[in-house]
């Protein structure tokens, strides 16, 4: 599944980031790497979402969140 399919309040483990090169690098610099845990704090039904990663909050557009492969954490 991708992060875009996630729901508010759940934790997800990042399995892969497949956006354009420059955006991938930015996400990695912000700490979104394979194995990182992210939590969805808030989202619009068909749009951007707010996630928590490594103690900070990021707003991600739909294009980016649907290019991040994740696995739901138990």
């Amino acid at each position: 599944m991708t992060l875009y399919d996630g729901r508010i309040g759940a934790d997800y483990e990042v399995r892969g980031v497949y956006v354009e090169e420059a955006v991938t690098r930015r996400l990695q610099a912000l700490g979104i790497n394979d194995g990182t845990t992210v939590k969805i704090l808030n989202r619009k039904r068909k749009g951007a979402m707010i996630i928590q990663v490594r103690g900070t909050r990021l707003a991600l557009g739909r294009h980016i969140s649907s290019c991040i492969e994740v696995k739901e954490e138990a």
Partner: peptide, 9 residues
């Protein structure tokens, strides 16, 4: 355009 990426302090 749905490529928003911004930190929310």
């Amino acid at each position: 355009n749905d490529s928003l990426l911004i930190e929310l302090p």
